[in-house]
Design a binder for these strands. Structure first.
Lengths: 145, 145
DNA sequence: ATGCTTATTGACAATAATATGATTTTTAAA
DNA sequence: TTTAAAAATCATATTATTGTCAATAAGCAT
């Protein structure tokens, strides 16, 4: 089961976090990223291509090409990645799956879930990747062992 | 994309909420429930069978048979249904998909997500279906129009 | 007892999500 | 200018989820 975000989104977040702790504009190939994140190369490049289209990541074709962050980590928030890969649906749909859930016609947990959803949105949009750098470095370091 | 819970779980919750606002021990066939919830009959009976195994719902075969709540609504919490259908994984896994996420080896949002996850768990376990009755009735009424 | 109605069970089809592979295009370096 | 490396694109395979069907077993009413 997916935990809120799709596997695609999870991988995209991981790959961007990887890029965020490297020198800006330095390029990394899909293969290098795939090795460090331990996911298939093709999956990495597919996700990074989507993020390239949405301007978060940049790419350079040909020899000595690769992917790099198109913006400073201080200008990227996790929610940008979620938006690009999964869209905002997760923040809009009824958690119990009822049709037409709204404050006029709420499901039994509508109000409480609304608050949680807002908190989740905040979590993903308040901090930038810059502020995550230290934690990100530690986490990605730990993947190697 | 699944919004936290699987479709199976969503439907199971809806079906149990349906039963919770009816007279206790009164039986409803899978077909009746499926019509009111606007989902396929077979899907309803499959989910209710799982819930029968876990003791939340009771069933009666044969003519004038059907499904009914096996306990009082005051003894059922949404989390019981989630547990029976999807399991508790959603409350245990890293939201960003990192392996081995823990307080010793946290992902960048581990602490914040942990709090949110606890709140979600509380939301599903603090109140019983008894306390939802009024809201449930309104919501299910609204599905007919 | 008989037949109808219902849950139960297991198989299976359809769809969506995930993962992989092959080909093409672009680019830089030799 | 040739070659190799890399993204980009298109196609395919695999897996998981969701939804449907058919056969069976059980129980009620007549």
């Amino acid at each position: 089961m997916t935990v809120i975000f799709s596997k695609k989104c999870e991988l995209a977040v991981q790959a961007v976090l990887f890029l965020s702790i490297k020198e800006i504009k330095q390029v990394w190939t899909a293969e290098e990223i795939s090795k460090e994140m331990m996911v298939p190369k093709e999956f990495v490049s597919k996700m990074l291509q989507i993020l390239t289209d949405s301007g978060i990541v940049g790419s350079k074709k040909g020899k000595s090409g690769g992917f790099f962050l198109a913006k400073s980590p201080a200008d990227i928030r996790l929610v940008d990645i979620v938006k690009a890969i999964d869209g905002m649906e997760v923040f809009e749909t009824c958690v119990l799956g009822f049709p037409g859930c709204s404050s006029d016609n709420p499901c039994p947990v509508h109000d409480k879930w609304g608050k949680l959803r807002d908190d989740a949105f905040k979590m993903l949009s308040e901090e930038t990747l810059e502020e995550f750098k230290e934690k990100t470095t530690k986490k990605i370091e730990s993947l190697k062992s």
